[in-house]
Write a protein that binds this DNA or RNA. Structure first.
Length: 259
DNA sequence: ATGTCTTCCAAGGGAAGA
């Protein structure tokens, strides 16, 4: 089975690209971030016609997440129950698989603007709340996948310019410590379970020919729990959609699981 | 590199967020 995550920076603009990508990449589940639309504008019908179920948690202008699944999704939970948050950033659901129930958590992590800002403080609070909630979710659901736009480069090799961008947003020790604390719960960065090309990124700034020069960051991740670790057979970043006209600034990340 | 893209509000272009 295959799972994918993709920040599409407006579903209204990118819906045709998402449908085309699903046609070429018939994954079992796709987590979308930055829908930038409200639930009443979510194109459930378009996904249904493509053979997918969809659950959404939208918001006007900003944020918004969705899970697109081949099979129906059960026990849908929106946002982090323990955090009082006006922003729509998390949607979770359970998929029935031949291997048993699989819990999917799809999240659009806080950007954080810059270290020291109020938005950065919100990022830290949000990350702490996510950690505590994932810890509890893992007790209930040993087979768990946490995927999304993490807005964190886990290590220097995940940035095109770790020296020039040292201590800037996506690169701070505080953010990376939170990432490590998620791993410490018994999660594994699926991408790093395999040999990968150097300078592998999932996001490139629209400005200054960022993609063409491969000036990017690897900030979109798929973490799998201990119980799933042995089943992971591949993890790749699909750069192809970034070459489309009117692309998202992010590329999809895809993980393959045995069975 | 005040660089680009998207949306909102509200009627044109500026502000905000990423």
């Amino acid at each position: 089975m295959k799972l994918a995550t993709w920040n599409i920076n407006s579903l209204k603009v990118r819906l045709p690209q998402v449908l085309a990508w699903l046609q070429d990449n018939p994954v079992d589940a796709l987590g979308l971030q930055e829908l930038k639309l409200t639930d009443d504008k979510f194109p459930h019908e378009a996904f249904s016609e493509a053979g997918y179920h969809s659950s959404c948690f939208g918001q006007k202008t900003y944020n918004g997440v969705a899970l697109i699944t081949r099979a129906p999704a059960a026990d849908v939970v929106r946002n982090l129950p323990e955090l009082d948050d006006e922003q729509a950033r998390v949607i979770s659901a359970t998929l029935d698989t031949p291997q048993g129930p699989l819990r999917l958590v799809n999240a659009y992590f806080v950007n954080g603007q810059e270290p020291g800002s109020e938005k950065f403080a919100y990022k830290m609070r949000w990350l702490a709340a996510l950690h505590d909630w994932i810890k509890e979710q893992l007790r209930q659901h040993p087979c768990l996948v946490l995927m999304g736009d993490f807005n964190v480069t886990p290590e220097d090799r995940d940035s095109w310019d770790p020296v020039g961008l040292k201590d800037t947003i996506h690169h701070t020790v505080q953010e990376r410590t939170h990432f490590q604390q998620l791993l410490a719960l018994g999660l594994h960065d699926a991408y790093r379970l395999f040999e990968q090309p150097e300078k592998s990124f999932s996001w490139w700034d629209y400005r200054q020919l960022g993609f063409q020069k491969n000036r990017g960051l690897r900030i979109d991740h798929i973490l799998v729990s201990d119980a799933l670790h042995a089943q992971v057979t591949a993890c790749t970043i699909d750069r192809a959609p970034r070459k489309n006209p009117q692309p998202s600034d992010h590329a999809p990340v895809v993980v393959s699981l045995q069975g």
